[in-house]
Design a protein around this nucleic acid. Sequence first.
DNA 1: TAAAAAAGTTTCCTATTGGAAACTTTTTTG
DNA 2: CAAAAAAGTTTCCAATAGGAAACTTTTTTA
Lengths: 214, 214
Amino acid sequence: MTEQVHFLRKEKEAVLIQRKRAHSAAGAALKPLQLGKRVKEIRLGKGLTLEEASHLTGLARSTLSKIENEQISPTFAAVTKLVNGLGIDIPQLFNPAEREGTTGGRRDITRNGKGSLHPTPTYEHELLATELSGKKMIPYKSTICARSFDDYQDWVRHEGEEFMLVLSGRVCLYTEFYQPAELEEGDSAYYDASMGHAVVSLGEEDAKILWVTA
Amino acid sequence: MTEQVHFLRKEKEAVLIQRKRAHSAAGAALKPLQLGKRVKEIRLGKGLTLEEASHLTGLARSTLSKIENEQISPTFAAVTKLVNGLGIDIPQLFNPAEREGTTGGRRDITRNGKGSLHPTPTYEHELLATELSGKKMIPYKSTICARSFDDYQDWVRHEGEEFMLVLSGRVCLYTEFYQPAELEEGDSAYYDASMGHAVVSLGEEDAKILWVTA
DNA sequence: TAAAAAAGTTTCCTATTGGAAACTTTTTTG
DNA sequence: CAAAAAAGTTTCCAATAGGAAACTTTTTTA
């Protein structure tokens, strides 16, 4: 019983949205890293309390709390303990999850330009294969409107993996922890979508991209 | 001249093997980690002095020295500065050797035409994102050689779901239980790959298709 | 709904980081 | 080879991380 209720509590918290902003101490134009937020997500995802996480990592409850609330910048040694204790890999500090569902013997064809349109300030999405629900992949085409990284408030970040192919134009792919990469027509990239990412158009005309997210 | 000689000196150091052992202060069964060694390798690899690296990263010469000699465990903030300043990837800092089973926090870019090629009688595949193992999706481009359904011995059939987009040319998509569908450039289809399926080129030239299988 | 328990946060203090400058070692030049 | 310059290391100290325990908030139990 106690177990159950604890679980419920944790579930609730897991859904909670973190509001605190990282106060970039020294870093010049560095994007917020939000390490703490990440750590908290992972811990709650595993249904651990600070106390339990403390035992696992060898870090004090208070220290964990401060890290999660971005009150301190943990030493590298602390990050290592954290990562080892929680059973994740450092680069993998940004990954989770599984998936269910199936399309069960079905097929859906989307004609050029006939997908479902969703405009945003930075992209204009055209969702493909909208007839099928519960599918493992979400394919869409988009026209990149963003002309600089600053057009994004923050990194785009979501569950799963993402594949992208440049259909036309030239873009720059920004990925957290990686160097920006220029991609031309025909170039493609595959990455863990829980890493921050963003795409900017470099050419005169808007670039067109095909995405598939799993 | 001076330039040249400096370079030589740095080269020599780059080859030098680090002997110093990290004295694991608190960490119990923590891996060596040797962050410092790695940083030094990278700095020397780029032919930078501590002074130059200091300017680039915003960290003091002394601090860099201590990090390289594993005398201190830099804060995460310092690691971030370091990584940004030296223009390297965080994943690059950690065991560039090992890595298995997942894409966790990784990225792979494939340039146009630079994928791994696999010719068959009916398709010519170019596998994309081959650097990542354990990924959820398998993307590839292919040139359709088949000119009639009879070119196939039987339906193509495999586990999972498949998405396809016509990059150029015209094709006919045959799918078990469905009517054949003509697809033009920009058209796409999504189907359960365990249904029999096959694609035939209709035009004069071979058609190009992008596939993603999950 | 009050009391108890659990989870999380903050305080206080010690240990360690990070930076400026002194110092040592290595390399270059005369 | 000696002096000068450059590169790297160490020292000293202010700033900050990490841990113990007090404190606050949330959840559970009665």
